[in-house]
Design a protein around this nucleic acid. Sequence first.
DNA 1: CGCCGTATTGAAGTCTTTCAACGGACGTGG
DNA 2: CCACGTCCGTTGAAAGACTTCAATACGGCG
Lengths: 253, 253
Amino acid sequence: MEADMLMESTTRSRPAMAPSQVTPPASLHSLFARQPVENFVSGQILFFEGDEAKSIFEVVEGTLRIVRILPDGRRVITGFLHAGDLLGISFKSHYIYTAEAINNVTIRRLSRRAFETELANSDEIRPAVFHQMSDEMAAAQDQMVLLSTKNAEERLCSFLLKELQREMRAGGLAPIVKLPMTRLDIADYLGLTIETVSRTMTKLANKGVLTPSGRHAVEILRRGMLAQLAGDGDECEIEWRMTNTSREEFRRH
Amino acid sequence: MEADMLMESTTRSRPAMAPSQVTPPASLHSLFARQPVENFVSGQILFFEGDEAKSIFEVVEGTLRIVRILPDGRRVITGFLHAGDLLGISFKSHYIYTAEAINNVTIRRLSRRAFETELANSDEIRPAVFHQMSDEMAAAQDQMVLLSTKNAEERLCSFLLKELQREMRAGGLAPIVKLPMTRLDIADYLGLTIETVSRTMTKLANKGVLTPSGRHAVEILRRGMLAQLAGDGDECEIEWRMTNTSREEFRRH
DNA sequence: CGCCGTATTGAAGTCTTTCAACGGACGTGG
DNA sequence: CCACGTCCGTTGAAAGACTTCAATACGGCG
């Protein structure tokens, strides 16, 4: 808060982060509507990686983290889930990741049997599921791009921007991003350390991009600059497509 | 439930690096069997990111790269495709990546319309497609883990090991990994630079793990060591799963 | 045989991590 | 209500890993 940093930022432009998970289509949501809600307290685990995949879930309220632990103890978070997101839609016999509640979470659960029955019978559900999976795949690719090429500042900005967009979509009024997860969670999600996340956050605050609002929220002051720093700008895309094309034309013979 | 879990770990360890794409189930393969083959020369592009997604493909022969270009020119390769792999299975209206032939490639193509018709009608195809998508998702998650946490040596070893496993599955006899892609491709896939890939390769050769076999292949001399270095070892998994469990038990109340 | 693109190697630089200490918030208990 | 302890987050300094820049070597193809 008081420390001022003299480091200048190297700002470059980068490409697009697609929205990670969209609200499940009405048709999918309806599957869960009649299921009873279940509650999980902060830190509680819905299922472990390796558990038999018996259920799929709809998050009603709260935030979850999707975790994978490596043999040597390193932890990776491959995603966060919020109200409206779906969890566990896969056709593998066992879960390939652990799902933990970050805060108090309410979910509805559907047995996989019931789900697959619906899937077989309903011509409405099926495309919705395909689309859901396609969206998840696109999000995964975006995350790969982030982890492959982006530096700490770009990663954090991308993350904050995505969260902001989600909150706005969900009807948020003020440009405030809630961060129920710890810095460690964010670090493990962005492939950084807790210290780097902290330092980068401070740097962004000093630049006037955001201001901390308590410990688990930030207010975005300059959304445009945030987007710039996220490197998701798309103004160059056409040129790149063109050069790419011509190079190909050239090669093609 | 915990006992269950431990059992699971002891008997069969999770594939830390899941095989990216398995050979398509016979049912999916059969969709393409009657399509004519098409050829693409090295460097030629099947489709661009952003193109309307009109077709899905089965790779008959050769190797492709899945590419995303960022606005500032940085390039990310999110995957390689080999004979037997499927390409373009998604339910988005436009492709979200570019597909380029690395060497001379033969494919069979199916119009998306035909594909979706089959999907709607065949009770055999549908689950195969779901499984295919789930496999791709698992591969994407593994790649995220790689990019999040692994260092250069672990990344390269993971990559080589996966390629080796694929070649062995495909009936390869000698422990030789063919690398039709350039070092730049590998670098862009692993989130490294060409120089780091080169140096790491040299280091592995010096350790006696592998030996170069021409410029576009390596012979694996010590597969066990390669697996060790890949960081996908699973000998500690049980312990970690246990600590994970007990921590949860502790938290759970 | 010689050229050009690709790969390797070296040295310097940069960014992130690691190690270490401090500070602040929250919850518990006095 | 305040004190205190603990956990989480912040900050600093040093070390490390990878990148960048630059030069050289290799190998396929004309």
